[in-house]
Design a binder for these strands. Structure first.
Length: 333
DNA sequence: AACGTCAACAACCGCTGTTCT
DNA sequence: TAGAACAGCGGTTGTTGACGT
């Protein structure tokens, strides 16, 4: 009865992921799509549990993830949404494409909580806790909160409907495989512009390239001895394995990075300029078609998307931003 | 230079609902 | 239908770098 265990706990590696592990994971997912996480460790040779692989993909490697500083607008959105929804980070993340719930949660805990606390102290409020518990203690905040939440839920339901209606939309990264709900639900690619959507994979490679670069900086020994050259070898089961080769220690930082990016691009056959360029680049053909965007069908779907989301997400976001929320954030900005 | 403190963030843990065999 | 694994989620911890003393 039941399923076989996803992974035995013995020999499972923990801690930070290495660039090599990232590359292996991304190349595998690029080949097979996300999902079926149970088979990922065994098929890739990664000494990680399936859950760890899924989380790494969801929170870090998944295309379309924006990293770095939060903008003012994003910050305000988070504050608004946190007041509305409480610590429902996944729901909040659904309004902030390119941001993961983990990212938002961390940003809230490390930045915004303190910021709000400071501002409230400065603004005369002695409420030292701005989380949802303290919010709920505020009667004026409770007032109307159900209506807002209902509005939010309506928006989310509408969004889900939109996604269901556009299952084969060209912006879908893995059309043959349902994305984890964190990605499809939290980060609706349909709300992004075509230019944004076509750079999704690039953002993934950039993430890893940057990671590699940082990793090199951290470990200069490794920088001179490994990953200056990468070659791809087919697994026996058609997976791709990345092997790192030794090279001379002459390579500078920049050349290393350049080589890595080139290797990554050639490995996955995508780059950030792909969509804006003509499609004559036929040498990308082997591994690309799985996620290739059919430009021809994009126009009508984009029209539909525009129609849907003109009415749905942007409006709702606008509504969210226009909500007074005077009881919780008045005077903060 | 050495040490301690703090901030930032990636990753893990544990719970819950869903899905699969 | 039961039981086990999967997947999603929020809370928490561990690691690392920056900064001050």
């Amino acid at each position: 009865m039941g399923r076989p265990p996803c992974c035995d706990k013995i020999g499972i590696k923990k801690g930070p992921w290495t660039p090599e592990e990232d590359i292996i994971l991304v190349s595998y997912i690029q080949e097979h799509g996300p999902g079926n996480w149970r088979s990922v460790p065994s098929n890739t040779g990664l000494m990680r549990c399936s859950k760890s692989c899924r989380l790494r993909w969801t929170n870090y490697l998944r295309p379309g993830i924006k990293r770095g500083n939060f903008t003012d607008h994003e910050e305000k959105m988070i504050i608004h949404l946190q007041a509305l929804l409480g610590n429902r980070w996944a729901a909040i993340a659904s309004y902030l494409p390119q941001r993961t719930d983990n990212d938002i949660k961390n940003y809230w805990n490390t930045h915004l909580k303190k910021k709000l606390k400071k501002m409230q102290i400065g603004g005369g409020s002695d409420d030292d806790n701005n989380d949802d518990k303290s919010n709920s203690s505020n009667n004026s905040q409770i007032k109307g909160q159900w209506e807002r939440r209902l509005q939010t839920d309506i928006h989310m339901a509408k969004q889900a409907l939109c996604e269901a209606l556009s299952l084969d939309k060209p912006t879908q990264i893995f059309p043959e495989t349902k994305l984890p709900s964190t990605s499809s639900h939290h980060h609706p690619t349909t709300t992004t512009t075509p230019n944004q959507t076509t750079s999704l994979y690039a953002s993934s490679t950039e993430n890893i390239a940057r990671l590699l670069e940082n990793w090199m900086k951290k470990s200069p020994n490794m920088a001179t001895t490994t990953t200056t050259t990468m070659e791809t070898k087919p697994f026996s089961n058609n997976n791709m394995v990345i092997t790192t080769g030794s090279s001379s220690s002459e390579g500078t930082q920049s050349t290393i990075t350049c080589t890595q990016e080139y290797a990554l691009d050639s490995l996955w056959s995508f780059n950030s300029e792909r969509s804006s360029q003509s499609e004559e680049n036929t040498n990308l053909g082997e591994s690309k078609p799985q996620y290739q965007e059919p430009q021809e069908t994009q126009v009508p779907l984009m029209l539909l998307e525009n129609w849907l989301f003109d009415d749905a997400a942007p409006q709702c976001n606008e509504d969210l931003m226009n909500m007074s929320l005077e009881e919780s954030t008045e005077g903060l900005f």
